[in-house]
């Protein structure tokens, strides 16, 4: 029996930060991925305007995920980051392009096409890299002593490519359903069309990744088909199927917020499934959260900060979203 200790709480906080990042920056990156499919001019402006005031806050969850990992599980941070050197570097560079594109495309109308392209390319590369990171973690990382023991191409396998592509499809769905919520008229029609394609794609991808996982060396199926994993293992796929169905039907419903909410649910379920597979490791099959944990003094000190600050952050983030609530049109927010 594992008691709830500080390490478990910290694993929860990091998981929360990563989850918040995936859901929130997911739709930003998704809009970047879908950008070429929007009509040049008003439709593109509208899509960008719908995220311009919030993307920076969304991305900060990534910094909390990374920084939190260093603080709470330094050993894991020290092993995972060198193991994923190439994809993480690509992700960072992708985020550079995506982040500056928000400002630069307005500054330089003559080269707007170029910055729009780099917005898409940056979003795509960053997303692929994040998906590959997930796949590489699941398939296993070589550890030697307290460090990474493999080469700098170990991450590249068909499985990690599959998770990479899956995440691209998933983020694109988040982006499309966000736009169904935030736009009207032809732009919204385009978003609905894209959402249909991505929804099918994501369900196929979830199925494919789930089907491959038992063949990885991590013995994940043992967790799924043993108690207590079994309690969750049965309902999760059923729930995924049901949510997918509702999602499909909601795309054409007049309730514009619903597809986005259901996509969030779909993501949450997938992350729950992942959590069951990985728990209680931080590097699957190699390093448990307790082996990687920072000492109690570090954990307590940070817990005070997180306990006070995270609710405040959620509060003012919610306020910022509320300020920019409602539909956008070409002239920005109503």
């Amino acid at each position: 029996m594992m008691a709830i200790d500080l390490t478990v709480i910290w694993a929860g906080i990091i998981a929360f930060a990563v989850g918040a990042y995936v859901l929130m920056d997911g739709f930003d990156l998704g809009i970047g991925i879908l950008f070429p499919f929007f009509r040049v001019g008003g439709e593109r402006d509208m899509a960008l305007n719908s995220i311009a005031p919030v993307w920076d806050g969304n991305e900060t969850w990534l910094v909390l995920g990374g920084g939190g990992l260093l603080a709470a599980f330094p050993l894991a941070y020290a092993i995972i980051l060198p193991a994923l050197y190439a994809p993480l570097t690509a992700m960072l560079l992708g985020l550079v392009f995506r982040g500056v594109a928000f400002e630069f495309r307005w500054r330089d109308p003559a080269h707007r096409a170029f910055w729009d392209f780099s917005f898409t390319a940056g979003s795509l590369v960053a997303t692929l890299a994040q998906g590959i990171t997930l796949g590489a973690l699941l398939q296993g990382i070589r550890v030697e002593g307290r460090g990474y023991g493999g080469g700098w191409w170990d991450w590249l396998t068909p499985f990690s490519l599959l998770t990479g592509v899956s995440l691209v499809v998933g983020y694109a769905l988040l982006g499309a359903s966000w736009l169904i919520w935030k736009t009207v008229g032809p732009a919204q029609q385009d978003a609905r069309r894209l959402a249909r394609i991505c929804a099918i794609g994501l369900l196929v991808a979830i199925f494919a990744v789930s089907a491959c996982t038992p063949f990885l060396e991590g013995k994940y199926y043992a967790r799924w088909f043993a108690f207590p994993g079994l309690l969750v293992a049965v309902p999760v796929p059923v729930l995924v199927g049901l949510t997918g169905l509702f999602l499909w039907r909601s795309i054409d419903s007049p309730r514009d917020g619903r597809p986005f909410l259901l996509t969030l649910v779909l993501f949450a379920l997938s992350m729950l499934g992942l959590a069951i597979s990985i728990w209680p490791d931080v590097i699957p099959g190699r390093v448990s959260i307790w082996e990687a944990a920072a000492p109690e003094r570090s954990q307590i000190f940070m817990l005070v900060g997180a306990g006070v600050m995270v609710p405040i952050i959620i509060g003012y983030t919610a306020w910022a979203y509320w300020v920019f609530r409602g539909k956008v049109d070409e002239a920005g927010y109503h």
Partner: peptide
């Protein structure tokens, strides 16, 4: 982490929380 992993492992318990506070 990517480039100074040994440093991160060793100093993480001390400097990590300060950087987490920064975030």
């Amino acid at each position: 982490g990517t480039n100074w992993s040994v440093f991160s492992d060793k100093a993480g318990p001390v400097i990590g929380p300060l950087m987490a506070y920064e975030v």
